[in-house]
Nucleic acid binder design. Structure first.
Lengths: 340, 340
DNA sequence: GCCTGGCCTTACAACGTTGCATGACTGAGC
DNA sequence: GCTCAGTCATGCAACGTTGTAAGGCCAGGC
């Protein structure tokens, strides 16, 4: 059996409470007692029991991370960063997958699993604006990703509009004028699709280029296959375009593949830029220009905000933070830097 | 505050232990009492406190999953499957990243985090054979991936040797005779590199084809960049080859990119097959033939074995399970099935 | 009328920890 | 010599749950 405070106390010849005091660095423990107790701790290999601590303190030392699915590179890499950031703060991460499904997302907010963690980082996908009220939960919650809700909740996200505008500008700076968009979500306004589309329009407006609906292709989930589909539909409809802004990298890579199958030269005929800076984009042929949304910063900020919220309680004013973005120029928009 | 057994008991007019009995479906609770208590439970929205349960029962309801890093697609997809399998068994997953670093892997085995979970699924990378003894830990442990150790530990893995042999056979069946290998690990014998190389040699031997060291390229970690490096070194050295067996998909995709840069036609000039069946392989151009190692089955088996071990204790004989593999033919070895 | 035994309910003691209150000792100040 | 403040150590009571043992009640058998 593993040793308890009492075992250590017996060996050291003190009360078990004194051992607790040593372990927790209480003031008013004499050096000799401390040494004696420490020796007993070492001898028995005593480790405080986390469940008992949890029960007393109400803290578990774990946070939850709810994402659609780890199979999507963006979320896998986000999870990587979150776990790393959490580790530095001495907290572990319990990952839950929602599949982007509304029902399962609601479940994450109310399920009994919440008791296992001190708070939740939540990247919703299926919830709609009307669900905002459901986010008024009684545990520490930080939203990740898009600012879908106006709820009373901390929020860490990226500069979707500005970054999308910069991505579009990048294409326009190359002299392209017919910029197709892949991955729109009809009618959606303040999810990432809506925000990025807004940035796209802002860039066009600023240069007096007319918005052409024919260039904007809807897609379902932002998976590679849907990027491929979208590109096919664009080509089938015979729409003319000399550049593509894919609303994320997966879509871009799917579209890229179809263009290559069709013998379209990238970037000579069509330049393409994605969004997210997932690793694979570095190794595609051509390598994929993209927007680095500051994933590491998002993860770090999110963990910080959540732990802050856990510590300070619900009274503190809610925070909304955005990470800095960066345009990453690679071959797909004409940069000539052969990559690994 | 959230309700406790006592609160429910007070409302229902019974002792708190009776409430506990209702919650745990004990026999000998009369229907009327049960109904009364249940009504009180519903009214107060009572939920058993998991930490208190943990303290009493010694179970946390969580398992650990230690992998090198989630940014590697294989592990992200494995984690996805593990979380899904665990969810079906009503258990949550705490993910830890080791970076494949020996020191951090040892830390995972001894660290205080172990108290947060009932057992660990561990996919080691940095540990050497000499470390086998370190796996004799006092908590439920299931090794994932390669059979690096002969320790007294449950183990779930894939058929590395047979699968690698089948992959090689697939290339040989196409009439190729100069099959390069990318991703060997000099001197390693029973890690995945060693096992897969053994399968490769077995395939050659069976057909009386001589093993040519010049065709076998070492690589460091199995990342895309190292696959690219390896292909470059092969080309620089002027080694002749008409097929490539990359020991995993990431290496294959890196190598593929370099071949394309160099104008080598795939599969016309060189056929290439990978290993792992990560999603990206479906969308590369050409799409990548590969070995599906049965990731989902591995995840499901691993969770089953671990939960079994947790339940039955250390006395049960240890188990070693292998998932079934499958060759996935795509364009990179000549199949003509354009993919999304 | 009392004992027996089945059914239902309850009291008590843990699990290992920490907060609070108390107590004992020491030395300084008057 | 006595008080008082500061230092150190301790005991008790919780946190919310479950296991064990015991208690109460009722019907049936002698």
């Amino acid at each position: 059996m593993t040793a308890t405070l009492r075992d250590v106390a017996r060996l050291a010849g003190v009360s078990f409470k004194t051992v607790s005091n040593v372990v927790n660095d209480h003031p008013y423990v004499s050096d000799t007692t401390r040494a004696k107790v420490q020796a007993a701790i070492d001898e028995l290999g005593y480790r405080p029991n986390r469940q008992a601590r949890s029960l007393r303190s109400g803290r578990t030392g774990a946070i939850g991370l709810a994402v659609p699915e780890l199979s999507l590179a963006y979320f896998a890499q986000l999870a990587d960063e979150v776990i790393t950031a959490a580790e530095q703060r001495d907290v572990v991460v319990v990952i839950e997958q929602t599949g982007g499904d509304r029902r399962r997302e609601l479940d994450v907010l109310s399920g009994s699993r919440r008791q296992l963690t001190d708070g939740l980082l939540f990247s919703p996908l299926g919830l709609s604006n009307d669900d905002g009220g459901l986010l008024a939960v009684d545990f520490p919650l930080v939203l990740l990703g898009e600012r879908i809700f106006d709820g009373p909740v901390d929020h860490v996200t990226m500069e979707n509009v500005d970054a999308a505008r910069a991505a579009t500008d990048h294409l326009l700076d190359l002299g392209r004028r017919r910029v197709a968009v892949i991955g729109a979500h009809e009618g959606e306004v303040i999810g990432s699709a809506g925000l990025r589309l807004r940035g796209y329009r802002a860039a066009l407006d600023a240069r007096g280029i007319a918005y052409d609906e024919a260039l904007v292709v809807d897609a379902g989930p932002w998976h590679r296959i849907n990027g491929a589909e979208a590109m096919r539909s664009l080509l089938e409809r015979g729409v003319e375009f000399d550049a593509v802004f894919a609303l994320n990298d997966e879509l871009a890579l799917g579209a890229l593949r179809v263009m290559q199958e069709q013998g379209i030269r990238v970037p000579a005929d069509v330049a393409i830029i994605g969004f997210d800076d997932v690793d694979e984009g570095k190794y595609s042929l051509p390598s994929l220009s993209t927007v680095d949304p500051g994933r590491r910063e998002i993860a770090r900020l999110a963990v910080d905000v959540l732990l802050d919220r856990i510590e300070k309680g619900p009274e503190e004013p809610r925070r909304e933070l955005r990470s800095a973005y960066r345009i990453v120029e690679r071959e797909s928009t004409g940069a000539l830097q052969p990559q690994g």
